[in-house]
């Protein structure tokens, strides 16, 4: 017969709750680009701040108290722990509420979720990072991970395009990479009305002319708006990239992040569980993907 105590002592909701947000303090708000701020967070619990580990390409569920919860990719590298950096574009109700918060205000964080980039496979190979616009946000984690473990990777190439110089995310730190000899950092803008931009001017695919890429030993990580996928993917295929070495980071509506709420499904996969990093082979096999 069941004992009444058994129920009283059984509280997975309190002890093992995957939906439990952990409170984190906003320690810095860096206004990189109008409505594309970089929020630096640190968990209130020191233990959690020390132990939190993620893979490049993973995301968290970010709660803005009173407004809601949303998936945000992690822009900081796991090689630089203790804080989380999130590049958030102000685009909807919850991000609006986030933008009303100030340094030292509290938000909720749970995660990390998703598969992340297959680092074990990528290591020892060359890496090509190709991003347009906000696509730099998830790729930045991979970029700094590779640079912080420089000896574990072959050639590293970054191709990043923004509309204008003032729209370029992480501009200062990326411009500083241009002079480094251990990475080929190629930055371009569609247009430069101010005339002050010293980098390339032109569309993102034009940067291929300046990159030395060996498709047989390179993983390509691509992220950006649909137009980026359209041109970059075709270019990579033309170069002879195997379809499972082209990695894409996707976004979908998500409410749970843990394979339950159903919103992020693409074809027969959940973006939150089998993604958000998909290969191009996945993409051509899953309807509605891009």
């Amino acid at each position: 017969m069941l004992v009444a105590d058994e129920v009283a002592t059984y509280h997975p909701v309190l002890t093992e709750n995957p939906y439990q947000p952990h409170m984190a303090r906003i320690v810095r708000i860096h206004k990189m680009v109008e409505n594309n701020h970089l929020f630096t967070l640190r968990f209130l619990e020191d233990q959690l701040a020390h132990s939190f580990r993620h893979q490049p390409g993973q995301f968290i569920m970010l709660s803005v108290p009173g407004a809601g919860e949303m998936p945000i990719s992690i822009s900081s590298s796991p090689s630089r722990p203790e804080v989380l950096e999130l590049c958030v574009r102000r685009v909807g109700r919850v991000t609006d509420a986030l933008y009303r918060l100030k340094t030292n205000d509290l938000v909720g964080v749970r995660g990390p979720y998703g598969n992340g980039y297959p680092m074990q496979e990528i290591m020892a190979n060359d890496v090509l990072l190709a991003a347009g616009g906000l696509g730099m946000a998830p790729l930045r984690s991979l970029l700094w991970y590779a640079l912080d473990h420089r000896d574990k990777f072959g050639n590293i190439t970054l191709m990043y395009g923004a509309k204008r110089p003032e729209d370029m995310l992480f501009r200062e730190e990326l411009v500083a990479l241009v002079d480094r000899t251990d990475i080929n950092c190629l930055l371009t803008v569609d247009a430069d009305p101010s005339g002050a931009w010293k980098g390339h001017v032109g569309l993102l695919p034009a940067l291929f002319d300046y990159a030395k890429i060996d498709p047989a030993r390179t993983y390509a990580a691509v992220c950006g708006p649909p137009v980026v996928y359209k041109f970059i993917l075709q270019r990579l295929l033309d170069l002879g990239f195997p379809k499972n070495r082209i990695l894409m980071s996707l976004e979908r509506r998500m409410k749970c992040g843990v394979g339950k709420c159903g919103h992020c499904s693409i074809g027969y996969k959940y973006t939150c569980m089998q993604g958000p990093i998909f290969t191009y082979w996945d993409a051509i096999n899953l309807p509605e993907m891009i």
Binding site: H11, P12, N17, G259
Partner: peptide, 16 residues
């Protein structure tokens, strides 16, 4: 779905 990876504790309690 609810008792696989990332067990849903609300569902789990009710199921029990």
């Amino acid at each position: 779905v609810f008792l696989g990876k990332y067990k849903d504790p609300y569902y789990q309690a009710r199921r029990r």
